[in-house]
């Protein structure tokens, strides 16, 4: 997976009008990958992102080859939150731990959604990114 996928996603958003940015976010929401089977059976492994107003849960994983994976789940009735989770899950997938930790903390503010989505909601995405990085650091230290 390209280390620049998050940058590409940002370019895709910024190339669009506000209204179409929302539709792209909706596409991401619809494309949020299903949880792998082992997590569906073990909801206790997932961490709740309490900063998000909707119940969203995340779990980070490093596979045998050292590639990063972010798993997330959020309800269908919270498409904005699902969209944010999906951008991160897809954009970070397959990166190395170092690449993930190097993602700027203000990435959510840089993708051109502040006009269409209120700042308070965007901060929920920042919280997801922050928690994913924290979980990864804990994993590396373990």
């Amino acid at each position: 997976m390209s280390a620049d996928l998050l940058a590409e996603i940002r370019e895709d958003f910024l190339a669009l009008e506000q209204k179409d940015r929302l539709l792209l976010l909706l596409e991401f929401a619809n494309d949020l990958p299903e949880l792998p089977k082992n997590f569906q059976d073990h909801p206790d492994l997932l961490e709740r992102v309490v900063e998000c107003q909707s119940p969203v849960f995340i779990f980070v994983d490093l596979d045998a080859g050292g590639a990063f994976h972010l798993h997330a789940t959020a309800p269908r009735e919270s498409p904005t939150t699902r969209g944010f989770a999906s951008i991160l899950a897809q954009g970070l997938d397959g990166l190395s731990a170092q690449q993930v930790l190097a993602v700027p903390d203000d990435y959510p503010q840089s993708i051109g959604l502040s006009e269409a989505v209120s700042p308070l909601r965007l901060r929920g995405m920042s919280a997801m990114l922050g928690r994913a990085k924290r979980q990864l650091r804990e994993r590396l230290a373990a």
Binding site: L22, G83, V117, R121
Partner: peptide, 22 residues
Amino acid sequence: DEDVLLYEVGHIPGSVKIDWHT
């Protein structure tokens, strides 16, 4: 709605969306 995308996910047929923020 509070969620700016919820209308697009599904709405009452014939309804229109008004977003508080935009």
